[in-house]
Simulated scan of single mutants.
Amino acid sequence: MRAPVAAPARDADQVMVQQGGGPTLDDVLVGVWEGLAAHRTVACPACGEAMTPRYSAGPAPVGGRCSSCRTTIA
């Protein structure tokens, strides 16, 4: 059994390390989508290569596609 922590951590990464886990699938996908929505190239959640935003008729990204494994986020 672990000793109680005196004060809760303020950084999400620190909390995950203390709990012995990593990011959840939700954390990963939200991070990818936030990057794509900001018109940035992000790491593909499947292979780690470059995922670029995909656009439709409007100026906002509607998803992303990996340049390596072709994984699509929509």
Rank of each mutant, 00 (worst) to 15 (best):
R2L: 13
V62C: 10
P4M: 07
R54V: 15
G20I: 08
A57C: 06
A7K: 13
M1I: 13
M1C: 13
T24F: 01
Y55E: 05
R2Q: 13
A3G: 01
A7G: 00
R2K: 14
P45C: 07
S68D: 12
M51V: 02
G58A: 09
P53G: 08
R54N: 12
T72C: 02
A12W: 10
A37E: 10
C47W: 07
G22L: 08
A9W: 11
D27W: 01
T24M: 01
D11R: 10
R40Y: 09
P45I: 03
A38S: 12
A50H: 11
A6F: 05
D27P: 03
A7M: 09
A3V: 05
S56V: 00
G31C: 03
T52H: 12
A7I: 04
A60L: 10
T41F: 05
S67K: 14
P61L: 10
C44V: 04
W33Y: 10
M51W: 06
G58I: 00
P61H: 08
A38V: 01
R70P: 00
R70V: 05
Y55K: 08
V17E: 15
L36E: 06
D27K: 03
A74P: 02
G22S: 14
G63A: 08
V32I: 09
C66V: 07
A38P: 02
P45W: 11
C66T: 08
L29Q: 07
V15R: 13
P45N: 14
Y55C: 04
D27S: 01
Q18R: 13
P61N: 12
P23F: 00
M51T: 03
A57N: 11
M1A: 15
A3S: 08
W33I: 14
L36Q: 09
A7E: 14
G63D: 02
V15I: 15
M1Y: 12
V62Y: 00
R70C: 04
G64C: 03
G20L: 09
E49A: 14
A46M: 13
G21K: 15
P61E: 08
R65F: 01
T71K: 11
V32P: 01
C47M: 06
W33D: 04
W33S: 07
P23G: 04
H39M: 02
G20M: 08
T72A: 08
A9P: 01
A46T: 12
R2W: 11
P61F: 01
I73T: 03
P4V: 04
V17M: 12
R70H: 14
P61M: 07
S67A: 15
Q14M: 09
A60I: 04
S56D: 11
L25T: 14
V42E: 03
A3Y: 05
V42M: 03
A46L: 12
A6C: 01
A37I: 00
M51F: 03
T24E: 02
P8E: 10
S56P: 06
P8T: 00
S68L: 09
P4Y: 11
W33V: 14
P53M: 10
V17T: 13
L29D: 06
T72W: 03
V42Q: 04
C69R: 06
C44E: 05
Q18K: 06
G31P: 06
C44Q: 06
R40A: 12
